[in-house]
Amino acid sequence: MSEQQEQKKMAGCEKFEAALEDYASGELPRRDAKRLTVHLESCHECREALEDARLSARLVAVFSEAVDPGPGFTQRVMAQIHVAEHWVREQRSFWRPIEAWSWRLALSASLALALLFSYGLRSNAPSAAPEPSGVLVPQTDAFAVPISAPPSTGDEVLMAIAEKHHERY
């Protein structure tokens, strides 16, 4: 039988899948079981499916050997819990003083910041007026043309005196 034919035939029996599962495990109510038994007599596919279910149940039974936790399992679990709880307590006792002091530290830090800020505002207030700074002086000197260069010869000295005299009168 081709796979397509098989699928088509099985499609009609899909409604029995859940019931077959219960039937295989002996959990199907008697009335439904009777109805299914009648169906099984006429349906080769469902009979085969039931055989498959039983075969696989047999195969999987190989894992049925109980995994024994052993006598000390509970003690091991409880010991682990005690260790974990002890660790948590230790962690808490380490952080608790820091937690207790943290708000005070935060408060002191914010106070210090506020003080620094207000000090900064006050010290900046007088220097707010524009004023030639020391840095600008060499810049102006560098670009300023001297009104009068210092006299270097005797003639220049005489010329400078004459100019001053002329300016005065």
Binding site: A18, E21, A24, A49, D52, A53, L55, S56, L59
Partner: peptide, 11 residues
């Protein structure tokens, strides 16, 4: 349904 299909596949 899934159990039943799984059984068939295993078989």
């Amino acid at each position: 349904v899934r159990l039943f299909r799984a059984r068939r596949k295993l078989a």
